[in-house]
């Protein structure tokens, strides 16, 4: 069960500013989900290898050949803030 404080920590770990009033609903819905997962506890999975992706392919590699870069205009087109040709952001600390 996720407690209220843990819920807030998780929201911060996800970098999502969840409003104080929404915390109980988040807690409730996620805890219900965890309860729902109880069924997998008895799945006979011991020692079974994992499947990450349903693709049956392996070792898909690309030749080391350069493709021209996108234009700097395209690169910056969607940027919320720009300084010269760089993305600008508020201070980090």
């Amino acid at each position: 069960m996720i407690q209220k404080d843990e819920m807030k920590e998780l929201a911060w770990a996800a970098r999502i500013a969840v409003g104080e009033k929404d915390i109980p609903e988040f807690q409730d819905k996620i805890n219900k989900k965890l309860a729902y997962y109880a069924v997998i506890a008895d799945a006979p999975a011991d020692g079974v290898p994992k499947t990450v992706n349903p693709s049956r392919l392996n070792t898909v590699l690309r030749k080391d050949a350069v493709v021209p870069s996108m234009s700097v205009e395209d690169a910056l087109k969607n940027a919320p803030d720009v300084h010269e040709t760089s993305f600008k952001i508020p201070k980090i600390l």
Binding site: I2, M7, L10, A11, W12, A13, A14, R15, I16, A17, V18, G19, D22, E25, F26, K29, I30, K33, I89, P90, K91, I92, L93
Partner: peptide, 29 residues
């Protein structure tokens, strides 16, 4: 708007709908 980057992204990411937010938080957990 926020005065540092981490706060800025957390506020920006609150633009996700609540069901999406819960899915992300659940995944992290």
């Amino acid at each position: 708007d926020a005065d540092n980057w981490h706060e800025m992204i957390a506020k920006t990411r609150a633009l996700f709908g609540p069901a999406v937010e819960r899915r992300i938080i659940l995944g992290i957990y």
